[in-house]
Write a protein that binds this DNA or RNA. Sequence first.
DNA 1: TATTGTTATACTCTATAACTATA
DNA 2: TATAGTTATAGAGTATAACAATA
Lengths: 143, 143
Amino acid sequence: MAEPRSNSEIASALRPAVLRLSRRLRQMRDESLDLSATQLGAMGVLFRGGEMPIGEVAAQEKVQPPSMTRTVNCLVDAGLVTRTAGDTDRRQSKVKLTETGRAILLADRRRRDAWLTTRVAELSAEEKAVLRQAIVILEKVNG
Amino acid sequence: MAEPRSNSEIASALRPAVLRLSRRLRQMRDESLDLSATQLGAMGVLFRGGEMPIGEVAAQEKVQPPSMTRTVNCLVDAGLVTRTAGDTDRRQSKVKLTETGRAILLADRRRRDAWLTTRVAELSAEEKAVLRQAIVILEKVNG
DNA sequence: TATTGTTATACTCTATAACTATA
DNA sequence: TATAGTTATAGAGTATAACAATA
């Protein structure tokens, strides 16, 4: 599968590559004892976007609302995010990173990305350039 | 995150992109009622590599042996693969796609990749070229 | 009635630890 | 003793369905 040409060939080659890498990335948790990849993802959304409704976090992470409720519950219990009722619309619960959450997110990212950063560092400059561009494309593909 | 530059910035941007896309890819199962992404992955290894010990399938898919035992059990029950004791070393159990398995794999891939293929098709020729190269790099990063 | 979120529930994936059988 | 695989067990992640509260 060195040269997939058609759209479906690209899709067929991309799928296992992404699935295998994601498996590895989830396991990296063992090195950072605090956060799961899922929790880190949700916190990352809040880091970038600031305070927002829980539904928006779910949408950005491409999970269903009940899944994000569960993740946020864990983070609230750990004191990493706060959940407050919306002021204009009280159905919403606005979620926000705490200062502790922000600090732990940054520390955890550094530790967690150790493996992946090492792997990336071993690539050539050309390969890194391709990867940089590919990240944007992957996000685009994902909708 | 349009222009990550350092190795760790690339890692930090790549991680969520891969995790979110993998989530989506696992959900695609709903459209193809037969195989999970995990099962499809294992079958894909056998499709490419022919008959091999179960440990080898696990290694290629980057999962631990007990996880692959479980996956293979399901596939055997469904008649999609066969498991036979090794002839030279009877500790091994060699696994092989059945003809049915091969046919279902190919049919399922076509159906399952429908979403991803559509997304890929919407990319420009340049973006597809980047993605083609990136797939190889992702596999390399993954070890 | 429609929307936002939560609760209840169930299933898949995956891992680690302990075990069996063979080398 | 070492290796290949399986069994037993546990935990995380995710979904759907049903519900509550608010708009």
